[in-house]
């Protein structure tokens, strides 16, 4: 489900089935690194949108957690998101990012951190983009299945 009114209504009606929050972690900057940061952001956006389409009934794709790119990523603030969503019934948290800074944080202790190197998708046709994202998302599927299985013990 996406950040859309229709999906929010569906979520509220079917809450018990939607237990996974997907949160893209998206740095912002201006200046000389901007193109690179935007490129990664675009990749993460397509990646998470593809993921959402495959698992729309169990996954809620939130708007990106957006922050200014510095060495110190705002993990406390992310934790607040997680706590709020946990209180509302989400059980699994998937943080998806190309920003390597998150690997040195505790994000993995209150959710699953999936770090993936981005590449440019700028010149891809729709069909090629879909194929590419399918392959990229495949890398995440085992992690997600494990995450889901761990609960159905």
């Amino acid at each position: 489900m996406k950040w859309k009114e229709k999906d929010a209504a569906m979520y509220l009606a079917e809450k018990e089935y939607v237990d996974t929050a997907v949160i893209p972690l998206m740095p912002v900057t201006a200046g000389k690194d901007m193109q690179d940061v935007v490129k990664s952001g675009e990749f993460i956006r397509y990646f998470t949108e593809y993921l959402e389409r495959q698992y729309a009934g169990r996954v809620y794709l939130f708007p990106a957690f957006t922050y200014i790119k510095t060495k110190q990523v705002p993990e406390e603030q992310l934790k607040h998101w997680q706590e709020l969503l946990r209180e509302e019934g989400f059980n699994h948290f998937l943080f998806i990012t190309s920003d390597a800074s998150w690997r040195r944080t505790s994000a993995d202790s209150f959710g699953e951190l999936f770090w993936i190197p981005a590449f440019s998708v700028e010149n891809m046709e729709v069909q090629e983009l879909a194929k590419t994202m399918e392959q990229q998302v495949q890398q995440l599927v085992p992690l997600m299945m494990d995450m889901w299985q761990s609960e159905e013990k």
Partner: peptide, 26 residues
């Protein structure tokens, strides 16, 4: 598109039911 809540189904991916469409979500 799964008619439950819209995940994408695949054919034959559940080993126990190789001749069925399977939705991984629920």
């Amino acid at each position: 598109t799964c008619t439950h809540l819209g995940c994408t189904v695949n054919f034959g991916t559940n080993e126990e039911y190789p001749d069925q469409f399977f939705c991984p979500c629920h």
